[in-house]
């Protein structure tokens, strides 16, 4: 089965997600080709020689849907892959549906697993799983972070230069950097995170006091940041920080796939949740079924003993 992997570059830097796509794809594909718009001094390396359809970012710039789409379609027409795989990132989830529409090929979003010959997707905030039957000879996939084992090699791919002559409707003005961080969660040994289950802003201090008692940092899931209760620099997940502390305590966090992607590499995970079926239980070592606002003060008291 021929599979085309789409590499992502940002600001002339290759993103590591390509190695996860590669590791995942090796489960079912023998023939792998790669596409990317980047810089020739930073190429991916695999465990074998792979054809890399390459366009130079000095000509096409940062991600531009029109340029990337036209270049990628050219490669697909030439190679006729059965599967086209993107990482499920702001780049992948934007470009993949455009390719799906142009090819009129089914698209499977945020695939978490390859099992029994099919691609498995999350449903309803990760509480359920879904598999689908697809028609036609091609499919487009975005892959959730952590779905594949990252696999890197030492063989530099064989470059095949490509170009496209298109006018873009998009004017990429530039990047706006994240607000200055008041904390670097990626370096924290212990993170205690607050989720929607805290209920209201005033209760953040309860979670924070547990973080202090354990000598850790306060983290959070997305809804808490969107509500303005905690600053963005403390957000863990796909659009926040990816962390791997020794201990992660998830307080009132149900375990949406976007959050799990940011914290599942933690060594030990304790979850405090009123719902014992919450998907966070899948990655936790210990799930305490309790109301965090009542339980945490008792826990802190016991920690002091």
């Amino acid at each position: 089965m021929k599979t085309l992997l789409v590499a992502e570059y940002r600001e002339n830097k290759l993103l590591e997600s390509i190695y996860e796509c590669y590791g995942f794809t090796k489960q079912f594909a023998s023939d792998i080709v790669v596409f990317g718009v980047g810089i020739s001094s930073d190429l991916p390396q695999f465990d074998r020689n792979v054809k890399f359809y390459f366009a130079d970012s000095s000509k096409y710039g940062e991600y531009n849907p029109d340029f990337h789409k036209s270049l990628l379609i050219k490669v697909i027409e030439k190679e006729k892959p059965e599967i086209v795989i993107f990482s499920h990132s702001s780049f992948g989830w934007d470009l993949a549906p455009r390719i799906s529409a142009l090819l009129k090929a089914p698209m499977l979003t945020e695939v978490v697993e390859y099992k029994d010959g099919t691609f498995v997707m999350p449903l309803c905030n990760n509480k359920l799983r879904r598999v689908a039957k697809t028609s036609g000879s091609q499919i487009v996939i975005t892959l959730q972070g952590g779905a594949g084992q990252s696999e890197k090699g030492s063989v530099t791919p064989e470059l095949v230069d490509i170009d496209a002559d298109v006018v873009s409707k998009y004017n990429f003005v530039g990047y706006e950097e994240a607000e200055k961080k008041d904390v670097d969660l990626t370096k924290a040994n212990i993170i205690v995170s607050a989720g929607r289950g805290v209920g209201k802003k005033e209760n953040i201090s309860i979670v924070e006091s547990l973080a202090n008692a354990l000598g850790g940092e306060l983290g959070s899931s997305r809804p808490v940041v969107d509500a303005g209760w905690v600053s963005h620099s403390r957000q863990v997940g796909t659009t926040g920080q990816t962390v791997s502390p020794k201990l992660y305590v998830a307080c009132g966090i149900s375990g949406a796939i976007q959050h799990l992607a940011g914290m599942k590499k933690s060594e030990k995970v304790i979850a405090i949740n009123t719902d014992k079926d919450a998907p966070i239980g899948e990655v936790a070592d210990l799930l305490v079924v309790a109301d965090l606002n009542q339980f945490i003060p008792v826990l802190i008291e016991n920690l002091k003993k």
Binding site: S90, F172, G240
Partner: peptide, 14 residues
């Protein structure tokens, strides 16, 4: 502004 990873944003005009 598009939201990218890690709090970064991409500014696009069209």
């Amino acid at each position: 502004k598009r939201e990218l990873e890690g709090g970064k944003k991409g500014v696009v005009k069209l």
